[in-house]
Design a protein around this nucleic acid. Structure first.
Lengths: 148, 148
DNA sequence: CTCTAACCATTAGAGATCTAACTGTCAATC
DNA sequence: GATTGACAGTTAGATCTCTAATGGTTAGAG
């Protein structure tokens, strides 16, 4: 994993480096709130998709239904989410972030954008435009992310 | 965490997207070998730094000595590493990857480079050079990574 | 209606990881 | 030599996450 190199010489390594800086910012933020990476992702997803069922959460999380079940138990114990069944369909449960849950996760995206601004700071507007164009070209060939 | 957006509009999001693709490739590789992310990192570090002591491993892993202790117990149980004390210093233990451990982790860097090549495929040489220059400019302002 | 198969979710059990508290070792000072 | 404090590592206990097996629910076919 290149644990030693201190002068990367390829774009691939630079991507890893930048990704590391971003992830580190995110992990610190998450850890302060005593969430795991997966928990923070699911909580954010639920704010954007209230009432999602666990099967869908498992899909976008790229994990199993069993893991989602355990994960949600942890969040439910802390009062950050709620699970309700609708009459007429007893086998699927709709999951909602509670106000406390929404409150806890709010600010994460902002923190991420701030971290991104810091990362891009060395570039002037023209350079940013060039970078954006190149990144767009790359990502058009990439599979869709289902999880950030 | 932008779990829904499918058309990113900022370089920050594109970085996250690309990072996701890279990480996913790495995670699949690691999972096949029944290693955790942290375990693979430490194993790779030990191949590059034979005889490192646990305190140093904790430092580069950005974690605690206790976590390293637990992590190494798992690797030792599987015969992937060895711990030895040197006479004259009983309190620090030197850690080595066994041949089996080195064998297991070999190929990870190669797999990562292959994944990187796939990612950069849409760009011609001139574009790659431009991208590399921009990324270099960014990373010169970033803190040193201690972990990939 | 009943049977079956698909579907959604949970539990049991294991390993990984973390924090807090602990044991043992070394070195400096008196 | 005894004391003190810093250092290296481990253990205990908790949570998170995974795989495999299990429990209910629904829809469709006969």
């Amino acid at each position: 994993m290149d644990a030693n190199r201190r002068t990367p010489t390829s774009s691939v390594e630079l991507f890893r480096w930048i990704g590391w800086a971003q992830m580190k910012a995110g992990e610190d933020w998450i850890r302060e709130r005593e969430l795991s990476h997966a928990q923070s992702f699911v909580l954010g997803y639920l704010v954007q998709n209230p009432g999602a069922i666990q099967r869908d959460i498992a899909e976008v999380s790229r994990t199993s239904a069993a893991s989602v079940s355990s994960l949600l138990q942890g969040l439910e114990r802390r009062g950050l989410i709620e699970r309700r069944t609708e009459s007429g369909n007893e086998r699927s449960k709709r999951v909602f972030a509670t106000p406390a849950g929404a409150e806890l996760i709010s600010g994460f995206e902002t923190a991420m954008i701030d971290a991104g601004e810091t990362i891009l700071a060395p570039l002037d507007p023209a350079e940013r435009a060039t970078l954006y164009a190149l990144l767009t070209k790359i990502t058009q060939e990439l599979p869709q992310p289902t999880r950030s």
